[in-house]
C-alpha cells in the first residue's frame, strides 16, 4: 500500500519536473497548481561542470538509471557505472571544508529537497551512504566511483599488463 502511494506521488513528481525544462512558464503553472509552495531548486554540485546526463533527463529518469545500475552492480559486479549512487553523492553532497556533510533527513540534502516536495520517501539512504566520500575513505572505498580518484581505480599493474597481454600472467 505505501508502495503504491509512493508510486503515485512519484508519478506526480515526474509530471511536475518533466514540465520544467520543456515549456516556458511550466514552472508557474505548477506553482499555481500546488498553491504557493516554491518548486525546489537544489544547489548545483561544487566541482563538476555537468552531470552524467542532461538535467531534464536526470530529473525524469534518475531512478530508472539507479535501478538498472543497482542490478548490474550487485549481480554482474559492474562497479564503474556512471550512474552509481556514490558518484551522485560525490558531486551533489560532498563533505564541506569543515568535514561536515548534509544528511538526508535534512531538507537541505540534494535529494531530500525534491523528495520532500513531492512526498516521496527516499529508501536508498536507509542502507546507502547519503554523502560523498570523505578524504579519509577514498583510498579504501574508491572502487564505487573511479572518477573521484582515477588512479586508484586502475587495477594493479600486473593485472593490467596481463589483461593487455603484455605479460604472461601467473
Amino acid at each position: 500500500m505505501p508502495m503504491l502511494k509512493s508510486k503515485l506521488r512519484f508519478a506526480m513528481l515526474v509530471c511536475v519536473l518533466g514540465l520544467l525544462p520543456g515549456a516556458p512558464g511550466a514552472a508557474e503553472q505548477a506553482r499555481s497548481q500546488f498553491g504557493n509552495i516554491a518548486i525546489p531548486d537544489p544547489a548545483k554540485p561544487l566541482s563538476a561542470d555537468k552531470c552524467v546526463e542532461p538535467v531534464e533527463i536526470m530529473r525524469r529518469d534518475h531512478m530508472e538509471f539507479l535501478l538498472h545500475q543497482r542490478d548490474e552492480t550487485v549481480i554482474d559486479g559492474e562497479r564503474g557505472s556512471k550512474y552509481s549512487l556514490v558518484g551522485c553523492m560525490n558531486c551533489h553532497n560532498p563533505a564541506g571544508a569543515d568535514g561536515k556533510v548534509v544528511r538526508y533527513e535534512d531538507p537541505q540534502h540534494f535529494c531530500a529537497e525534491c523528495h520532500a516536495y513531492a512526498s516521496v520517501r527516499i529508501d536508498c539512504f536507509e542502507c546507502h551512504a547519503d554523502r560523498g566520500l570523505l578524504q579519509s575513505q577514498q583510498g579504501r572505498l574508491d572502487m564505487h566511483a573511479p572518477a573521484w580518484k582515477a588512479s586508484a581505480a586502475v587495477p594493479p599493474t600486473s593485472t593490467l599488463q596481463r589483461r593487455l597481454g603484455t605479460v604472461d600472467g601467473d
Binding site: S47, A48, V52, D76, G77, E78, R79, G80, S81, K82, S84, G87, C91, M143, P146, A147, A150, S151, A153, V154, P155, T159, R163
Partner: peptide, 15 residues
Amino acid sequence: PGIFLYKTGQAAAGL
C-alpha cells in the same frame, strides 16, 4: 587526472 570524466568508469575488472 583530477578531472571528473564520467564516461571512463570502466576501469574496474568486473565479474
